[in-house]
Structures are given as C-alpha cells and as structure tokens.
Design a protein around this nucleic acid. Structure first.
Lengths: 218, 218, 218, 218
DNA sequence: TATGAATGAGCTTTCATTCAT
DNA sequence: GATGAATGAAAGCTCATTCAT
C-alpha cells in the first residue's frame, strides 16, 4: 500500500526533524543540553523523542554520525584518480578546511568531542557506523599516499598507514588550534591576547600542509 | 610578626592540599567530579573549599594551571643553548612525549580539556596565568626556530611564530591520536578494531617529528 | 444472523486472550506491570486493550475475578451433601490449601492484593461480581456450619456467619504466613532466619484446621 | 561541649520530624506517596530528606519500624508473669486489638504492607531491626504457650512455635477481615453490602480468641 | 577560619491513555 | 474494529553553593 509507504516516510521525516533540532541544541549547549530543549525545538513532546532514540546518548551519537557523513560525502566528491597523489592530498586537505569553515560545530563534536559519561549503552550499530565512517575517511588519504609511494613521489620508506595518521592528525591539530584562537572564550577577555593574533590563519593551514607534504616527499 | 608569616604558610599549604585532592578526583572523574568527593579527599568540609576557591570551575582551572607549570618546568630544564636548533627542538619534542607518558591526565585536561560549561566566572587572574604559561612554552620553541633560521638550518622564508604553531599543534594532534587509540572506550568493544592497532605508537611520534623537521629544513 | 453470532464469539475470544496475557504479566510484575507488555504478550496493539477494558485497573480486577472464579468452581466441586459437616469443612479447607498450592499468584492477588491506587473508576459491574463471588464462597462454608450446629456437632451458641468468618479468616491468615515464609524476600538475606524455618508448613495448616474445628465443636 | 550535644539533639529531632511527616503521607497514599509531599509536610527541601535517609524505601521501612516499635512496647507493658497462661494470651490478644484500633494505618502497613518494588537496597540494619522486633513479639506469645503446656492447661502435644504461629496468624487474619469490612473502598459503593454488615466486629474478634483458646486447651 | 546542614532547581526516563487514520 | 504514534505529567535523586553557627 502506498499508505504504508507514506507512513514510513513520515516517520523517517520525524526522525530527521528530531536530529535537526538536536543538532542545533547540542551545538550550542554540548552534551549537557537538556532533552526538553531538544523536544521543544522539535515541537514534539519529550516522550516522543524516545520513540525514535533509545537515550540522549544515542541521539547525540546519531547527530555525530550525520556530521561525519557530511565529511565522508565531501571526501567522496573530492576523490579524483586523475590527480597527482600530492594534488589529491591537497584536495583532501582543502576539503577538511572547507568542512572546518562550514561545519565548525561538527568539527568540534568530532575532534574535541565531549564524551558523554557513559557510552556503555549506546547502540552498537551506531558505534559501528561511526567507526566505519572514520576508517573510510582515512582510507581515502591512505590510498593517495600509497599511490604516491608507488609512483616515487613520496619517500619509499614511509609506512602508508603511519604517514596517513601523521598527516591527518597534524592537520587536525592545526585546525583545533585555529578554532581555539578564533573562538575559545578562554582567550576572549579583552586584556588577553590570543597567541596567534596577527597570524593569518588561512595561511597557517596552507603552510602546514606544504610543510607536511615536503616531509613526505621523496 | 613571624606568626603572621606562619599563618600565611598554613593557608598556602591548605590551598595545596585542596589542589592535590582536586587533582586526583578530577583525574578520575573529570569535571563532573563531585565537590564533596574533593572535600572528603582533602579531609576538609565542603564549605572550606569556597574559602580558597571561588567556584568549582576556579578550582578546576587552578589544577589545570599546575599541570601547565609542570610542563613549563620540564621545558626550562630542557633548554640548552649549546644544542643545535634542530636538536633543541627534538629535545622539546621528547619533553612533550615524556609529559604525555608521565602526566597523561594533565595532557588530556590541557589538550582535549573538557570545557566546564560556563567559564564566565573564572577569576581573570587564573586565565592570565594560564595564558602566560602557554605563551611561555611556545616561546621556547619559537626561539629555537628563530635561531635555526638565523643559522641557516631552517628555511629562510619561515615565519617563526607560524612554524612554531605548526610544529606544536601537529605534535599535539599526533599525541591526541595516540591517546585516543590507547584509551578511548569508543574503540574498546571487542568487535571493533582501533585504527592504529598494529602501529607502533612510539615510532609514530618520532616519525612525525622527523617529518616535520624535514619540512622546516632549509 | 449467524455471522453476528460469530463476531460476538470472536470478540469474546479476544477478551479472553487479553485476560490470559494480562494474567501472566500481572503475576510476574504485579499491578505495576506495563500495559505495553500485556499488549505484546496478547499480540495486540496497546490501543486495542482499551476497546475491551476501560482501564488498566479494570483489567486487573477482571483478572482477579477469574482467579476467584477458579476457587468458586473448586468449592462447587467439593460440595457433597453426604459428608458430615466437619468433613465437609475439612474438604473446603483442603480445597483452599490446594488452591494456595496451585494458584499462588491468585491467592496473593486475592488475599494480600496490591491495591491499585485509585479504585474509583473501576466499573461497578466488576465490583459487584467480585463481591458476589466472595459471598458465594463463604456461603458454602456457612451452610456446612449451620448444618453442624443443627446436627449438634458444633457448639449450639455459635452464630453461623461469625463462625464462618472466624474459620475462613484464620485459615487465610495461616496461608498468608506460610506464603510469607516461603517467599518473602524480607527474610531472604542469608543472615536472617525466617521465623518458621524448621516448621513443617503443611503440618502447620492441618494443625490449624484441627485446632479451629476443635474450637467449633460442641 | 553542650553545643555539640544540642546539635545532635536537633538532628535527631529533624529525623523525627521527617518520620512524622512521612508517616502521615504514607498513611494516606501508601508507598506511592510522593517524596515532594513528604518534604512539604515536613517543611523541608526535598534534598534534605536525603541527608537523613538513603532512599524513599529506607524512609518507608523506618516508618514501618516505628510502627512495630509501638506494638513491641505495648507487648512489653502487657507482660505480667503473675497471670495465668491463658490470661496472659488474652492480654496479648487485647493488646493486638487495641493496636488495631488505635494504629490502624500501622496495622495495615505491617500486615498487608505494600511491598516497595525493590527492597534490595534498603539498609540491612533496618531489615535486621524489623526482623528482630517481629521475632520479639512472637516470643512473648510463645513463652506464654510454653508455660501453659508445662502447667498442663494447654494440650501437651502442641509444638509451642507452631501454636504461636497458628494463634497469631489467625488473629491477624481476623483483624484483616474486620479492617476490610470497615474500610475497604471495594465494599464502599452504596449498592454493595459488606459481607459482615450486621455482625458485631468487636464480638467477632473476642469469639475468635475464645475459639482458638479452646482449641489449644488440654 | 571552618563547618556541614540545608537548599531547590534541574534532569532523564517511563507509561497510561488518547485519537487520527 | 484495530492500530500505534504522540502525549506530557510525574517522580526520585543529585549536587554546587550558601550561610548560620
């Protein structure tokens, strides 16, 4: 029946509504956000949330997963086998920077994410998905590095996985630093000076990538 | 009066007792630790804590500051003007790794630190101290890099401050990744595999430093 | 129409299915059992229950009524006018013990029954039925006692109704005590000793009946 | 210090205030009473209750214990070794009836008591006290019966413990029946007739005791 | 200075009941 | 008749902070 079909779509839409609401609220308040605020923003009763998610934790990680999915899709779009390995890496790096600019709250959730205290009861399905998606991202990078080593543009002694981690973690570390400088209220009082004030942050990130790329080169 | 002096010392000691207790409790429970647990561990009444610290937040950041002081002192000890710039940087890098190994909870507080929800009411004094100490650390690194540029071992176009941030943020990012792999319960379910399993983490860090150094080199 | 007839039977069967399910669930969880569990066990939707019963309370008392019906039927079967009054009473006593053994959860519902908090909204029909059935049971006993008085085997000054209540309430009290000793978790901690440990409970009940009978005798 | 002494008394008084409030509220609402109602009646904040009792359950059983203590004291006062065994038993029986009349809600809590769902976490101390007090009561009765057997007024084949249980459980069962008839809302709708209407309940209890005593006699 | 009793807002989760389809 | 999604009140317990002593 088309009606069954429609009901299913309505339910799915409701799920998305809740995720949308939760996203906004978690963005501004973190995991400590109140469930009632989420319900209110979703224009639903508190109890209704529990028809779609088992717990606040589950909801939180589901939001996280959506954030990761966005990045994953951006990576997929950036994949281009005609590019030189180094250029492909630069592309991924740009994608990451772009994600950082457009989805800052997701970047924070993913990179500096607050750990809900007990993760014991989060549905294993979601944990799996999170894990798989994370690995998927790194695989894109690792493939480009492998190709670079094979083609002789990257240093032959490099272990591709290690190099991937080094590159990615470093870029993440830089972005985190930029985020901190741009936004962290720790530095915000007017009589304090953020350590990087006066530094062009865009340039900093580019520089980092160049520097790391140089390090990888044969 | 010597008596006044003694009273002052007693007060200072009390402050330290509280910090010692808070440190232990925050380490095991994070910011969500209960003030009553801290009071109990310090063998003081809850109310007494408030005679020495304005709020739980203040206490938390004071603990943080002590953690930063430890690292600062390790840096001071590692400073050796007879070393070549690259070797001096390696020394700092080793110090950081050593801090990571010996004071992991501090590393986490400092790098991935949980944000107490409202930082509005933390005393400005502490924020200043935190800020100054952080800058102090980076200054050690920046000086070595400046020297390296001057002496021609590092690339002449480098901006010393930028390079410092890149180096330091990258190493921090790597350590964060290592910490995640060693400890994060997200990866602990037996059917998940931590992304770096099989990777020698010590080696990874060394490799990173080498790679970054290569990037800096002239 | 025979079809109307059939529909009626189907409805009646549905009612019974719900009662069967509710019985099992109330037995294991008491009145705090969840309606959704009952619906699930009955393989019906939650809302459907409300087509057959006005409220959870109503359902609870309907289950109770079935339990009472079982006992009533056992009494009817035990009725035998050829027996001597004392032997007839013993028969009823045995029936009660047998009910206690075979339908313990019903015994508890009936005797120590949990009171749903508000009984205001239970349908009067059910209350009537419960009341009538209870009286019916006692009538069996009362008749035997009347006969005993008439035949001179029981004390002539006895008021039959009073004697009935005394006999029945006493036996009920004994059974309740036995139930408590066999099951009450209050006594279960290993360092506590149930007051009747070491007492043969079957014997206790028999003894009680004998003692009460002696009390009734002329 | 007298001040310490006074503080202790104040704390003890506060505990009693809470118990007084809880008693009233539990009497009218049973275990499902709201903690906030208890707090309100005690003119204290909800959190304060938890400074004196670990949980609602603990509070409930503490109230229960007070009720049992009252009965225990009445028994102690009724103990009189100059009485004949039968008269001593009658005295205890009267005490029980008196308790039933003056402390009906306690009688219900004790005899038909609602079981808080989880009794697992009630402090063992309280469970012990409850258990001990209960046993203590029965001991009074058992002693009188032993003496009666020894002195030849009760049947020589009686097992004193068994006889105690039989006597006590029977009387309890009678009182429960009386309570039900006097108060149970199940019978209250005007068009129902309580089974014992027209029966003099005081007389019923006396009759029961006499009947049971006859049963015990040599 | 030190205490620790008291506060009370705050929060997640449950579940009987309703009602649009 | 049957469904089951939605509701929303309800409730026990926690804990940072205050303040009278």
């Amino acid at each position: 029946m088309g009606s069954q079909e429609r009901i299913k779509r309505v339910k799915e839409q409701r799920r998305i509504d809740i995720l949308d609401a939760a996203e906004k609220v978690f963005f501004s308040r973190g995991f400590d956000a109140k469930l009632s605020d989420i319900a209110e923003k979703a224009e639903l009763a508190k109890g209704t949330i529990y028809l779609y998610f088992n717990s606040k934790e589950d909801l939180y990680f589901s939001v996280l997963l959506r954030g990761l999915d966005i990045l994953a899709e951006m990576f997929e779009n950036a994949f281009d086998e005609t590019l030189q390995p180094a250029e492909q890496l630069r592309e991924y790096s740009n994608v990451y920077a772009s994600y950082f600019r457009k989805h800052r709250p997701f970047f924070r959730m993913l990179y500096r994410y607050e750990h809900p205290k007990i993760r014991t009861q989060v549905s294993p399905t979601i944990l799996h998905q999170l894990s798989n998606r994370s690995k998927g991202l790194l695989t894109f990078v690792a493939e480009a590095i492998k190709r670079g080593i094979r083609e002789g543009v990257f240093h032959p002694d490099l272990d591709p996985l290690q190099a991937t981690i080094v590159l990615w973690s470093s870029l993440s570390g830089i972005l985190r630093e930029i985020d901190l400088n741009e936004n962290d209220p720790l530095w915000s009082p007017s009589d304090l000076q953020a350590p990087l004030s006066g530094v062009n942050l865009e340039e900093l990130y580019t520089l980092s990538f160049d520097l790391l790329l140089r390090g990888l080169s044969a």
